[in-house]
């Protein structure tokens, strides 16, 4: 965990004031799993904070790094993990939703290129009104993120808010 490369980003919902009720979604700790040899798919994770006064319902995601980027969740059905596309992921007004391994995630099906540690992945989250929230995720070697090693070096939080994109 020592080298948790934290991705920080602020999503600018306020794109040129195009929307009357601009909503603000902030993504922190955005990471994408580095490609595993032999595996054509990957996933991205992040914490989404809705700093606005209304709920934000994400309905899709765009990215050039995968043929099929999708919003996904897992259903743990008596020990069987059933991964399914989600119709929406709602971040309540003033609330947070965590996308993490084994839970909600941005699925990257059919990577167009290998994701190398240290690189970046551009994602665009889209809400039901069609508003777009760009997110930059750092590509990390998830072998460092198993939680086992975190005993030695706990996952460090970081506060680098304020990066504007």
């Amino acid at each position: 965990m020592k080298q948790l490369i934290s991705a920080c980003l602020l999503v600018c919902a306020n794109l040129a004031g195009a929307y009357a009720s601009a909503q603000t979604l902030e993504a922190t700790d955005a990471i994408a799993r580095a490609s595993i040899p032999g595996a054509p798919n990957s996933a991205a994770f992040m914490t989404l904070s809705n700093t606005s006064a209304s709920d934000i319902s994400l309905v899709s995601v765009k990215s050039d790094v995968a043929k099929r980027p999708e919003l996904h969740g897992h259903i743990n059905d008596n020990g069987v993990m059933r991964m399914r596309q989600r119709e929406s992921i709602v971040i309540p007004a003033g609330g947070q939703v965590v996308l993490k391994p084994g839970g909600l995630h941005v699925m990257l099906l059919g990577l167009t290129d290998r994701l190398m540690p240290g690189g970046q992945v551009q994602l665009t989250l889209i809400d039901e009104a069609g508003q777009e929230y760009p997110v930059t995720a750092e590509v990390v070697d998830m072998r460092q993120h198993t939680g086992v090693s975190s005993k030695q070096g706990a996952m460090k939080g970081h506060n680098m808010k304020g990066h504007n994109h």
Partner: peptide, 21 residues
């Protein structure tokens, strides 16, 4: 399975470290 985008890599990375310890 190797196309498993999330659960399997998570389990295998975790297992490798647990076995190591």
């Amino acid at each position: 399975y190797t196309y498993c985008p999330d659960v399997c890599p998570t389990t295998l990375a975790y297992l490798a470290q647990v076995l190591d310890v």
